[in-house]
Write a protein that binds this DNA or RNA. Sequence first.
DNA 1: CGAGCAATTGAGACAAGTCAAAGCTGGTGG
DNA 2: CCACCAGCTTTGACTTGTCTCAATTGCTCG
Lengths: 256, 256
Amino acid sequence: MPKGILGTNESMLPLPRRPIVVRRLHGAEPCASCDARPNSVCSAIDDRDLERLAAVAVVSKAEPGRAFINEGERATSFFNVTAGTARLFKLLPDGRRQITGFAGAGHFLGLAVSDTYAFSAEAIGLVFYCRFARPRLREVLDDFPALERRLLGVASNELVAAQEQMLLLGRKTAKERVASFLLARSVETPPCTGPVQRLSLPMTRSDIADYLGLTIETVSRTLTRLKMDRVIGIPNISDILIHDQHALEALAGCGG
Amino acid sequence: MPKGILGTNESMLPLPRRPIVVRRLHGAEPCASCDARPNSVCSAIDDRDLERLAAVAVVSKAEPGRAFINEGERATSFFNVTAGTARLFKLLPDGRRQITGFAGAGHFLGLAVSDTYAFSAEAIGLVFYCRFARPRLREVLDDFPALERRLLGVASNELVAAQEQMLLLGRKTAKERVASFLLARSVETPPCTGPVQRLSLPMTRSDIADYLGLTIETVSRTLTRLKMDRVIGIPNISDILIHDQHALEALAGCGG
DNA sequence: CGAGCAATTGAGACAAGTCAAAGCTGGTGG
DNA sequence: CCACCAGCTTTGACTTGTCTCAATTGCTCG
């Protein structure tokens, strides 16, 4: 079990400076041309009503390593990631970290009744996102029930994923956790299907460890073992080749 | 880490017979007189519209140990627990079990976009609940946006709780897990506030273990140690006295 | 080319798991 | 009313998967 002081030796950037607001345009432009819209809740809104949504969206970006949501702070906004990947996490007072998920393009963040954020979000690499002031989005939701319905769907799916992750954290072995993680990434990476699938892992080993409830060393050793067993290939630090999908599924124990 | 074949030695009842339908009344009666309504999503509907909801609710009960939701089965209904407590869990193929939560009076179950249930629900003791056929509830939701909004709130809260549980499962020690569990139960048990709070634990040690990602033995040993340290008292198997709330909070590391 | 950081590898420690044996407790029947 | 059974819980002795600590290797970028 996690014993030591830190569950992470993640770089702590000195200044969590406020992220930069990139632009705030009029018209439907930012939403109409958004690459992430098809995968996001925003697709619940028709093209012709898009101006309404765009009017309350503030397009922003966060530099690598920068936090744009801080656990415990007053929750004034919702977010929608449009490009890049963010790590979502909670900390214990002594610095142990649990990553609860990774948010990619289309991911909606900030759902909570509470008036403070329940987790932090930090950019891995460069992250672009839309920010919606809560009261403004509330108004839009009143006008577009389809959007609210869509949010309920998103929340339900996240809940299912969270339960799957609880199973992983509470009952799976290190090998099963790593296998499950790779599989889950693999189903989220449909493009470029060939004989062997290539995964790119934008996050560090430390991120993976804190997501799977393990240490960096155990993640590294487990990946090495999977490589030795010819189940995966590791051409470089941030890429994984899945040589034997079936073996991986058998190791994962079950879904996800 | 969990190693052996079983994460549980829970009694497996031989026949998961269908639970008994108790009654299906006309008028607003079952909902209007429902003890669980104040704590449940149903309170989003006005007294005068209650007939509408009551018309689609089927009041049922499940005997102790009986399952009324089975992971993987076609999800045809939503549920609302009105009395008793149910354990919600997921299983691995070899029988290891992770309890993802306990559902008490007012708890809404079955939120999922997927067409199969993501978890099982089993009665601990006698459980009463309302069952709503999905399409019927869908119609009610269309008529009462407040109910749908309420559901989004419920889902958001569950998501926050799930993230807290991931932190517990991924990064906390056995002592911290047990302390967190007792504290969480204590905040959900506001009545009868005295110098020492009395918790009743309707679930078995095996349930607690499978909820906290531990074994029965570790749960038992940890409770004993807390008793030795005068932090809690254990008058009998299903009751806990909290002698030192502050010590418990310090041990829990943080919230929940 | 070398500083700096992330990842890997090795050796040893320990928290929690496994296996096994009592101890309780509640229900049943003689 | 008590003996006995069955199941849950507690306790003890030992094992082990994962963590900790400590190098070493490998990348990236100036």
